[in-house]
Design a protein around this nucleic acid. Structure first.
Lengths: 224, 224
DNA sequence: TCAATAGTGTCTCTTAGACAATATTGA
DNA sequence: TCAATATTGTCTAAGAGACACTATTGA
């Protein structure tokens, strides 16, 4: 393979909900640079295989983490001669959403070098400039949710409105009023009520919903 | 200079107001590919000279257009093997803001291959995928203004509130109510009233304002 | 005086947030 | 019945849009 100059790569913040907290998938670096440190999964562009940097990101998640993500959003691109000791590098950052039970790399491998980490607890603990990248990705996701694009891809196939509210709460980092939240999503076409299906427990059953097939997380939303 | 692979470059949508309309600076391409077509100014990363792709963009504007821009915002990065006939290419798109009278390249050169074009009139008239890039840049700028970051860098040093309103109107593409607009920007710390200075004409004089020195267009704004 | 634009006041409607009230289940 | 959570109703305040009114200049 022809050598790349500059070094062009994609890094991905794969978000999920772990114990109701927003979490991100990290890999422990097994090679220099940054050996032994935790970092966002990433990899170098393969011009022969990748139709775009989005394709690079998907390939990395597929080969390194064995996941296919339904949502992949570009965040920004960082560049410079000092970011990577190997030389001038360009990195495009993405974020992806997935229910954490769909990532087997974590639980399956005993000598696992992959883990979920709560986003809120990750101050300055990552390799390279990955804390900056993660912060940008988190802000970008938060922005989406503020525009009322629901992070339904973090949830299992069937979920309650309380689940949706908790997902939004963990992303926005603040409490949400139940009544207000429900008013706001009441007429969301992305939510499909599943008639007769309820989540049962030692209390009043909760209506179950699923994502509308037409729901497109990437779509924007007009606001004034 | 070491050859780049892939081809990494920056393209810039330099926005301004021309006759009250949002306009973008275009250059006619003098070389293949795209010779003779109009395109956003852009150029290839110089790893020795550019500390980042932002620096690339600034260098291009400085050398090709002889302007120093106060605002430069990253929009997104496009990539792929087919975008440019020269091979696999990565391009990061930026937008910049400037009063059009600060760009001399247009008026100064009789055989000028540079022009301002009203953004609203540019359907599918640009080289490569530059219409897509311009659309993305325009949306990104619009987004800023929707968050009440005022596009003050499009205006001259002294301006009236009506000027600000017209700038926002041309970016948002819709009429704005005067009273409502003024209520919204009433307590903007970015606006400094110039006591005793007025724009005079055949009507009631209009208070002049200037940008606050601390005004930072890049800063975001919290919204729920 | 009039034309023209600057600048302000007021009304209505929507909506977010706060908080309370009611509903429905299993134990 | 009670605990627990789901779901809904109501009040209030803030703010946007619409629109009309007043203010101040030059001609």
């Amino acid at each position: 393979m022809k050598e790349l100059f500059p070094l062009v790569s994609a890094d991905i913040a794969l978000f999920s909900l772990v114990d109701g907290q927003l979490a991100v998938l990290l890999g422990k670096r097994s090679n220099v640079p940054g050996r032994g440190q935790w970092a966002l999964p990433g990899g170098v562009l393969d011009p022969d295989a990748d139709k775009s940097l989005e394709a690079t990101a998907r390939r990395i998640l597929r080969t390194k983490m064995a996941v296919d993500v339904p949502v992949l959003e570009q965040v920004m691109t960082v560049s410079g001669p000092k970011r990577d000791p190997r030389g001038y590098s360009i990195s495009t950052v993405f974020y992806a959403l997935l229910p954490c039970d769909q990532v087997s790399a974590v639980a399956g491998d005993k000598t696992s070098e992959v883990k979920w980490a709560a986003v809120a607890t990750l101050k300055d603990k990552l390799a390279f400039d990955h804390n900056t990248l993660l912060d940008a990705a988190t802000l970008s996701l938060r922005d989406k949710v503020k525009r009322r694009i629901l992070p339904l891809h973090l949830l299992p196939e069937k979920f309650t409105l309380t689940d949706v509210q908790n997902a939004c709460k963990s992303i926005l980092g603040r409490e949400l009023d139940k009544a207000s939240f429900r008013r706001q999503i009441k007429d969301e076409p992305s939510l499909v009520e599943l008639p007769g299906e309820f989540l049962r427990g030692p209390q009043r059953p909760a209506q179950l919903y699923s994502r509308a097939p037409s729901f497109n997380f990437a779509s924007t939303r007009e606001y004034r």
